[in-house]
Computed example of a mutant assay.
Amino acid sequence: MANPAADPAARAPGVKVALSTASVYPENTATAFEIAGRLGYDGVEVMVWTDPVSQDLDALRALSDRHEVPVLAIHAPCLLITQRVWSSDPWTKLKRAKTAAEKLGASTVVVHPPFRWQRQYARDFVSGVWRMAGETDVRFAVENMYPWRYRDREMLAYAPDWDVTKEDYRHFTVDLSHTATARTDTMAMVDRMGDRLGHVHLADGKGSAKDEHLVPGRGDQPCAELLHGLADRGFDGHVVIEVNTRRAVSVAERESDLAEALSFTRRHLADARARRLAVPPRTGRAGGAV
Rank of each mutant, 00 (worst) to 15 (best):
D271G: 02
V243M: 07
A252R: 08
A261Y: 06
V239M: 06
V249K: 11
A248W: 02
E253H: 13
N244P: 05
R247E: 10
T245C: 14
A259V: 06
D271K: 09
R247S: 11
A259C: 07
V249L: 13
E255R: 13
S263M: 14
V239T: 03
G237D: 01
S250Y: 12
L269M: 09
S250P: 06
V249R: 15
A270L: 13
T245H: 02
L258D: 03
R254G: 05
N244Q: 11
S263N: 15
V251M: 14
A248I: 10
G237P: 00
R267C: 05
R267Q: 13
E255N: 07
V243L: 10
R266N: 04
V240M: 03
A252W: 08
A270T: 15
L258A: 02
V240D: 00
D271W: 06
S250G: 08
N244I: 07
G237R: 00
T265V: 14
E255P: 03
G237H: 00
D271R: 14
V251I: 07
A270Y: 14
A261H: 04
A259R: 10
D271T: 08
E255F: 04
V239Q: 02
N244A: 09
S250Q: 12
A259L: 13
V251C: 10
R254V: 04
G237Y: 01
H238F: 08
D257H: 15
R247H: 09
E253R: 14
L269R: 05
A259M: 05
V239C: 06
T245W: 01
A248Q: 04
E260D: 12
T245E: 02
S256L: 14
D257S: 15
V240H: 04
S263F: 09
S256W: 13
L258G: 03
V243Q: 00
H238V: 11
E260L: 12
A259Y: 03
R254L: 07
E253S: 07
